[in-house]
Write a protein that binds this DNA or RNA. Structure first.
Lengths: 100, 100
DNA sequence: TTGACAGGTAACCAAATGGTGACATATAGT
DNA sequence: ACTATATGTCACCATTTGGTTACCTGTCAA
């Protein structure tokens, strides 16, 4: 999940889907300087991470963002650290002052 | 930055620092089933990503969380997607209904 | 001043990652 | 039916990553 977000190409693909969802593999491929297979692998990873959901429509495969796991990151991780923000800085400040 | 968060060991190190900051390398090493050098490499990455800041104190190196970049992720990335949350689901729903 | 302890560097290794081309399958349109 | 298009699978390759051992440097404390 974090690993899925770690690659710049994958983040770019998410950005493309953010702009407009329901894109096909070929369409996404055309926006990236990479082979179709490369894009497919990235999309497969994103799908496995739950960041993207897909739906077949005829011979096309449409890709959509799944906002749920991003919300989970937000809730389980980011909040935890940002909440500590103020106190962490305060602690550091105190520690530094004690050492003077 | 995202890559720094992608490794479970590094996230665990961040968790350890979240519990209590100002830990030394050896102290962190003792909490992880890994050689000191392994831990050192992870810490170097975290520091390069700006997630951890350090301060030498005699022969020890103390490690602290730096909450700023996590805040940046929150602001630049997470918010963007979570804000789309409702509308994205709505769009998908609409699309699906149109195809019925 | 001499251990012992905390940290740093270099060289190396196995496995994961990001990418490729060749080939296969399924559907759309004429 | 035939052909072009869209996606899928396989086997392969180069590079990066996560980890190691061995050795070096700096600092505390008796």
């Amino acid at each position: 999940m974090f690993k899925a977000l770690a690659d710049p190409t994958r983040r770019f693909l998410l950005d493309l889907l953010f702009e407009r969802e329901g894109r096909t593999l070929s369409e996404l491929e055309s926006q990236v300087d990479m082979t179709r297979i490369g894009v497919m692998k990235h999309l497969r990873l994103l799908e496995a991470a739950g960041l993207v959901v897909t739906r077949r429509s005829g011979r096309e495969k449409l890709h959509f963002l799944n906002p749920v796991p991003i919300r989970l990151i937000h809730d389980r991780w980011i909040d935890k650290y940002t909440a500590r923000h103020a106190s962490a800085l305060a602690n550091l400040k105190t520690t530094l002052e004690e050492q003077k």
